[in-house]
């Protein structure tokens, strides 16, 4: 993409801003410990946690900001936050 003069934007332009770039800590989901309760999906403020065909959950790292709410709320402590190397 090229820059628009004056940061002038038509509708839908926010799709260019991928919030995944904000992330410092990256969640990793341990499916062995997961009870498939879905709290991570319910509470994710970015709405980026998805359920797969087997009922497990994983985030979309394009948008995951690494806020860590999923890891804090997971009743099974199945989500670990690790500092991400960039």
């Amino acid at each position: 993409m090229t820059l628009a003069v004056g940061c002038r934007a038509r509708p839908g332009k926010s799709r260019d801003n991928k919030t995944g770039s904000w992330r410092v800590f990256k969640p990793s989901f341990d499916h062995e410990k997961c009870s498939k309760c879905g709290m991570c999906q319910t509470l994710c403020p970015e709405g980026c946690v998805h359920e797969d065909a087997e009922g497990f959950f994983d985030p979309d790292f394009t948008y995951c900001k690494g806020c860590g709410i999923c890891a804090t709320e997971c009743p099974k402590e199945a989500i670990a936050m690790n500092q991400e190397e960039k």
Binding site: C7, R8, A9, R10, K13, S21, W22
Partner: peptide, 9 residues
Amino acid sequence: PISFGMYAT
């Protein structure tokens, strides 16, 4: 529609 001076990451 167009917005001016939108935010830039």
